[in-house]
Design a protein around this nucleic acid. Structure first.
Ligand SMILES: [Mn+2]
Ligand SMILES: [Mn+2]
Ligand SMILES: [Mn+2]
Ligand SMILES: [Mn+2]
Lengths: 219, 219
DNA sequence: AATATAATTTAGGCAAATCTAAATAAATTA
DNA sequence: TAATTTATTTAGATTTGCCTAAATTATATT
């Protein structure tokens, strides 16, 4: 199956938005890809033709088994390149998405398997997201909870659910990155803000907006 | 100046074929890019519009100063990626061109400067070709001669002028790579073949076809 | 110089990926 | 339920990059 760059971007977007096996709306895809709903309808017809999505008009879109398989390969490439940029080229986690968005379209089995080996076959990317293996399998880790719902006192940052540069830069500034250990000091009911502390640093407060997007595991 | 992938490939091809400042023919570009002369004419009009080439119909094509500047950046990206593939991902020199042909189109100043630093700011690629610096300057090395014209006895392989997989694989098989030191044993006038020897190995003969494409410097 | 051949350009078309505006269907609200 | 709002699709265009076939220009050969 040979996909164009545009087709790959659609497949990946649908995969991301599906999150399980719900059906995805035309509008949601258009918003995610910064394009127009009419364009999504056009592409939906093509992808259905290629048997990569299930689609009946007005009924939403979902990936076929074949489509999901391809999506996982694209996601794998994207996340491996993000690792490369951070681990080898010292980019920070808020700078890599855009570049990986292009690198992910260079298709070469050998390139990707070698890149993966070169990086030590990582299983998560710089944002804590899992990297599918060459067969598209995702090793399931312990389920994460968002910081705004956490109850345990000792926590470790294991991911971010919003990957906008805005959030990532904010977290950079606060000294929060993947693997950072946090003590949960207090939760304020009034605005659902939460006070946390990093070892050897003064405590500080995070808004619900922020804490909702920080995924943690308890230690 | 924002170029499409197709435009970048044309600019790079013109740069390669120009080799100095000759004018390049429609046919030559079509052949190099495996496309049709009519398509080249179409693109020539667009690139002229963008002031990247000088072009008057029937008079051939040449890069403007601006066009050459862009070409050098593309060449830089291409060759740096080739270095990455060989030095870091252990590809052999006959496998990297195709992949670099795609990677070269990922445009990010920062990516390329970091990649270059990561590789130790190399000045030649795995085929012995020079890598322009960020300003497009090419450090001129001592001029190379092809093996079929060499006279000195002790030689070092410093490049290949034909980069087809066929030649590169052949050289691999013979144990000839960049930096290989050769003793020139004999040149046979009859067919212009040449007998060479690698240290600690039996001597062997190379056809003119082959020796023409091996660039050497004398030691 | 006339003719033949080769190189190049033009004309006309096609496919991919997008768009805007208008039409239609679905969902929500009164 | 009827009206309104929202979501989605269709119709019709545009841009980019490519193609084939035919016309034109340049070059080489007699
Ligand atoms: Mn992408
Ligand atoms: Mn990521
Ligand atoms: Mn290319
Ligand atoms: Mn090269």
């Amino acid at each position: 199956m040979n996909l164009t760059v545009a087709e790959e971007n659609y497949i990946k977007s649908i995969y991301k938005l599906q999150d399980g096996d719900q059906v995805v709306s035309t509008n949601a895809i258009a918003y995610d890809l910064a394009t127009k709903p009419a364009s999504v309808t056009d592409m939906a017809k093509k992808l259905k033709e290629k048997k990569l999505i299930d689609y009946e008009k007005y009924q939403g879109i979902s990936l076929t088994t074949e489509g999901r398989k391809l999506a996982l390969q694209i996601v794998r490439r994207h996340r491996l390149w993000e690792c490369f940029l951070v681990d080898k080229l010292s980019f920070s986690w808020d700078e890599v998405h855009e570049i990986a968005e292009e690198l992910e379209h260079v298709r070469s089995e050998k390139l990707i398997s070698r890149l993966s080996a070169f990086l030590g076959n990582p299983t998560t990317d710089p944002h804590g997201d899992p990297i599918p293996d060459a067969q598209g399998r995702i090793s399931k880790s312990q389920p994460l909870i968002s910081l705004d719902k956490a109850t345990a006192r000792r926590l470790e940052v294991a991911g971010v659910s919003d990957q906008s540069s805005a959030l990532l830069e904010f977290l950079n500034a606060k000294g929060i990155r993947l693997g950072t250990q946090l003590d949960l000091i207090e939760r304020y009911e009034f605005d659902n803000s939460v006070e946390v502390k990093i070892r050897n640093q003064p405590a500080f407060t995070l808004s619900e907006q922020v804490s909702k997007n920080i995924m943690v595991k308890s230690l």
